[in-house]
Structure formats: structure tokens, C-alpha cells
Amino acid sequence: MAGEQQETLAPVVSVRKRHLLDEILQQADIRINGDRPWDMRLHRPAALDEILARGSMGLGESYMRGDWDAAALDQLFFRILRLDLTRLINPWRSALRLLRSHLINLQSRRRAFEVGERHYDLGNSFYAAMLDQRLVYSCGYWRAGAKTLDQAQEAKLDLICRKLGLQPGMRLLDIGCGWGSLVSYAAQNYGVECVGITVSKEQAAYVREHYADLPVEVHLQDYRNLRQQFDRIASVGMFEHVGRRNHRTFMQVAKRCLKPDGLFLLHTIGKNQRHSTTDPWIEHYIFPNGELPSAGQIGDAVDHLLVCEDLHNFGTDYDQTLMAWHSNFERHWEQFAGQYDRHLYRMWRYYLLSCAGAFRARHIQLWQWMLSDHRSGGVARIS
């Protein structure tokens, strides 16, 4: 059901003057009021001026209000981002946001728990309906031959465990443990003791309730307060919340907590350009204070601290993961329709499908960095 529109589309406004957005979108073979799945179906002509003036925020908010639709949002965003058309709309706003990210620490200790409260605490039942059976909220590993979302996520978890070379008796730290998918899998299948940290009360409660019979601890805390040492460390889908001003601090914490012969796996979404900013709509509505790192920024952060043993990009698998989440989201929405309004429905639909289009266009990436402590004195063994 990739890109399938679940709701009835409102009538299209057919009489209007040609707009500058017509010219911009035409470069990506997108027509306003066209009849193809990726075409924009306009319901309020004034929305075009708002999109041109406010860029990503105008595009997202006008969609949330129902000012326009597209039968296949993922295809529309793939076409827009493949040609990077967003650069043509209000570039000065991006410059101001870039300056702000340099001047203000948006991911300070005081702000650390905001994303947990606003995004991850939306409700465990909501995420259970959208995700796989282990509630893995990060990219699946489809290229291993997975046919279902459950298989893709279990393949990813096992890939991480094998890269880390987990052995019975080891202690594993998961920085940003989510609903406990990695720590529970590692404890069950590799015989390790696990500690996870999260900034989400709902996630912490879920781990404590569901994995009380496993050697798994979970703590509601900021990563900067970590002091214990571990044989292995993983961080899966959390580094996107750290921010450029804190990248070095994060790596210093990882080094402090890693035994001299240990390994650290960093699994993170990444951007292609160092000097770029977070999409403002995503930051405001989905991941407050989020900021994707570039490969260069991660390299700077580990300089003289950790050694990069391996770098693995499987960002194209995120497209399929997001489309699977969207399929689950649409299929189960009715059970949440009384709890959440239509505004949230359109917000999440826009989020999932726009991100799928972004990964499909290679606009953003998914990396697994294997890092070791140079104090080990030799090349780390990676299974």
C-alpha cells in the first residue's frame, strides 16, 4: 500500500493563476492539480503563497490543515528531494537556522527530556501498532533477505550483536535504548548483561514491565551522567538528538564508559552536507531539538578519542522500513481515531511518507560506525 491515500480527497480547485511554485515543481515533473499519484492536489490556492514564503514549515502545516493532498506523498517528496528543490524556496531561512545551531545549544541538559515527553511518550500502544513485535524504532536490515518488518528488525539486531562480538558474561550499554529491543535481544540470544538509558518515561516503564526476567536494567537519564564502564556500547537512533555542539561530549562519554579493549557501535541517520540544518517542520512537530550529523562532524567528534574500524551505509533500507511503518499506521489508525485528532493523523502520515521519500532520494543516509578505543593497542576484532 506504498503511498496509498486512505482518506477521501476534497475537490480540487481548478481555476487559478499560474504560480511560481508551478515552475519550481515542474523541474521534478510534479504538476499542481495533475492526476498522477505524485502530483499535488490543491484545495486552497492561498497555500501556494504560504509554501513559497515559509518553505518546509508552510508545506507541512498547509498539508496538516488539508490545504493540499497527494495520493503518493512518498513519491512527491522523492521527486522534490532528488533534485533538492527545497534550496530554491526561502534559502535565507536556512541560513538563520544554521546560525542559531552554532550559537545556541538546543540539546542542553535542560532540553534533553523534551523529545521524550513530546514524541516518545505519545503512547506505547500507539508505537506497538506501528512498529514490529519488538518495538524497534530504527532502520531495519532488509538486504539480509528479510520478507517482513519483524524479520528485517531482528536481522538488524543480530547484525549489531555480531559486529560487537558479544559473548556471554559481557556487559552492554545501550545509549538511547528505546523500548528495549536491543538489550532484550542481546540478553536472550547472546547471554550478556545489559544497561539501557532513555529520556522517555513510557519507554523506561515498558522495559521494566516486559523484561523483568532478563539481566536488563533501564535508567531514565541523560547520557552525560553515565559513569560506569562496559565491554561493549551501542547507540541506535539516538545520536540524532545529540546536536553538533555536543558531538564531542558524547564521544568523550563513550570513551569514558568503554573498557580499553571494547567496541562501540553508533547507528545513526546522517546528512550529506556538513553546513545544513534540520528540516524545520520535522524539528517542530516530530523531533524537537533534533539535528542530523554529517560524516565529517562524526569524524571530528572521534578525532584523537576513538578509532573508526568500519563504516556501513544501508540508508536505502530505511525507505522500506518507513513504508512498512506507514502501512501499519494506516491499518491500525481507527483504533486511535478517538484518542488522537485528524490533525495528528495527517502529521504522522506526512512525517512517515516524506522521510521515506528522503531516503529513497538519498537525501539522508543511515550509518553504522564501528569504533574502538585506541588504547587497545591493536585492531579490534569485529565478527
Rank of each mutant, 00 (worst) to 15 (best):
L292V: 10
T277M: 08
G290D: 04
T268G: 03
N246D: 14
S294M: 09
D279C: 10
G243L: 06
G299N: 13
Q221H: 02
G270R: 00
D300V: 06
M238A: 15
G299V: 00
D261M: 03
I233T: 07
G243M: 07
N272E: 14
T278F: 01
Q221N: 07
Q221F: 00
L263Q: 04
R274M: 07
H267I: 11
N289W: 06
A234I: 07
N289S: 12
R232A: 03
Q221I: 01
H275R: 15
D261L: 04
C257E: 07
T277I: 13
F239H: 12
Q273D: 14
R224Q: 12
G299H: 10
R244Y: 06
P293A: 13
Q252D: 15
V253A: 10
G290Y: 00
A301T: 11
P293F: 13
P288F: 10
G299C: 08
E240S: 02
H275I: 11
P260W: 06
I298Y: 07
I298E: 05
N289Y: 12
I286C: 03
P293Y: 12
T278C: 14
H247M: 04
G290M: 03
W281Q: 02
L226H: 11
G296E: 13
N225F: 01
I233K: 02
N289L: 05
G237T: 08
P288T: 05
N246Q: 14
M251H: 01
Q273F: 09
I233H: 03
Y285R: 05
M251D: 01
Y223Q: 09
H247P: 00
G299K: 07
R232F: 09
H275C: 11
R274C: 01
L220W: 10
N246Y: 12
S294L: 09
S294P: 11
Q252Y: 10
A295M: 13
D222V: 14
G296R: 11
Y285A: 06
Y223T: 11
V242E: 02
G299D: 07
G299M: 08
N272F: 09
R256Y: 12
F230W: 14
R244H: 13
H267A: 06
I233F: 08
